[in-house]
């Protein structure tokens, strides 16, 4: 890292703006050279952000350790009860294991597609179709402690079996938890953006920083990896979309804008809908589009509870 990058990083850190990975970067940088700690201490005199006293890990461990033992003791005091329950449970689980072994193959999975799309069975009832040059790897505890699959690339999942362990797809910073469904997880823009589209059922999306979304059948969303935010597909599409209107009625224009921007533009006077517009908009915010339209047609607009209202005299 350059000295400028270090200054940006530690300013952010000391002022309480650092993300977990940035805080880890600071700690790694501190370990590289004892002088770095001096630098950080000095910067904290300007920015604040560091405690005056260094935390004492040994003393802290003495406080934490008894709490850990207590947690273990609770389980020991229940040993006889647990033993009785275990016998019953063991018998049930043994039966379930035999049944499941026939039903679902829980061996660790690793699927890699070639240049073209390829379909694989995840179990007897579920399958995945990997797009070209994609990879799906199962976590080490797959089928035992989790059903976590790490996806590189894009894939379409058709999950029909229901398990106490939910199937979870990990891709980039995003986790997609299946709730019995058919869904697509697609990597866009070289992996910077992840598109999730649900055809049936629903999925639950979350990341390690607490962003989360529920997605139902017919819905799709994009997750921006760098900023770790979810963006509605329609919203992001307008930023990449061009509109060309050639002598089109304002009614038609509004119909298209309402669909693209997911808003509700209405006309104060329905006769305004007959006005004709010729214009081209490229990757514009809705407010900009409305401003151009109203300026061109000598109209005005105001915001309403669910969108916008266009006002003015009908065209002659």
């Amino acid at each position: 890292m350059t000295s400028e990058e270090i200054d940006i990083l530690i300013s952010k850190y000391l002022l309480g703006n650092a993300l977990p990975e940035e805080a880890m970067q600071v700690e790694e940088w501190l370990l590289k050279d004892p002088q770095n700690k001096v630098y950080l201490e000095q910067a904290s005199q300007i920015f604040g952000g560091l405690s005056r006293s260094e935390p004492n890990a040994l003393a802290a461990w003495q406080r934490v350790k008894p709490q850990l033992k207590q947690a273990k003791k609770i389980s020991i005091s229940r040993v006889w009860l647990s033993a009785a329950a275990s016998i019953i449970l063991l018998a049930t689980l043994s039966w379930l294991f035999v049944w499941r072994a026939n039903e679902i193959d829980e061996k660790p999975l690793a699927f890699i597609s070639g240049d073209t799309a390829q379909a694989f069975a995840l179990s007897t009832k579920s399958e995945v179709k990997l797009e070209g040059n994609s990879k799906l790897l199962a976590d080490a505890g797959y089928g035992k402690t989790n059903r976590l699959l790490t996806l590189t690339g894009s894939a379409y999942f058709n999950v029909q079996d229901h398990d106490s362990l939910p199937l979870t797809i990990h891709t980039g910073n995003l986790f997609v938890r299946d709730i019995g469904t058919k869904f697509l997880v697609k990597s866009l823009a070289g992996g910077d953006t992840i598109l999730v589209k649900v055809d049936e059922g629903q999925v639950f999306l979350f990341d390690s920083l607490g962003s989360e979304k529920h997605l139902k059948a017919g819905e799709e969303i994009k997750y921006i990896q760098k900023s770790r935010i979810f963006v509605g597909t329609q919203l992001i599409d307008t930023l990449h979309q061009s509109f060309t209107f050639t002598d089109q009625s304002l009614s038609e224009v509004i119909f298209m804008l309402n669909r693209a921007y997911r808003t509700h533009i209405t006309l104060q006077n329905q006769l305004l809908g007959n006005c004709r517009l010729t214009a081209r908009f490229e990757k514009e915010e809705l407010e900009t589009v409305l401003l151009v339209i109203t300026e061109t047609m000598n109209l005005s607009y105001e915001t309403t509870r669910d969108g916008y209202l266009l006002k003015g005299e009908p065209c002659k």
Binding site: Y13, A18, E27, G49, L50, P55, A60
Partner: peptide, 14 residues
């Protein structure tokens, strides 16, 4: 715990 305690506490303090 010993490896990460100081760094995590420093981070929490910020």
């Amino acid at each position: 715990f010993q490896e990460h305690y100081s760094g995590l506490t420093r981070y929490a303090f910020t």
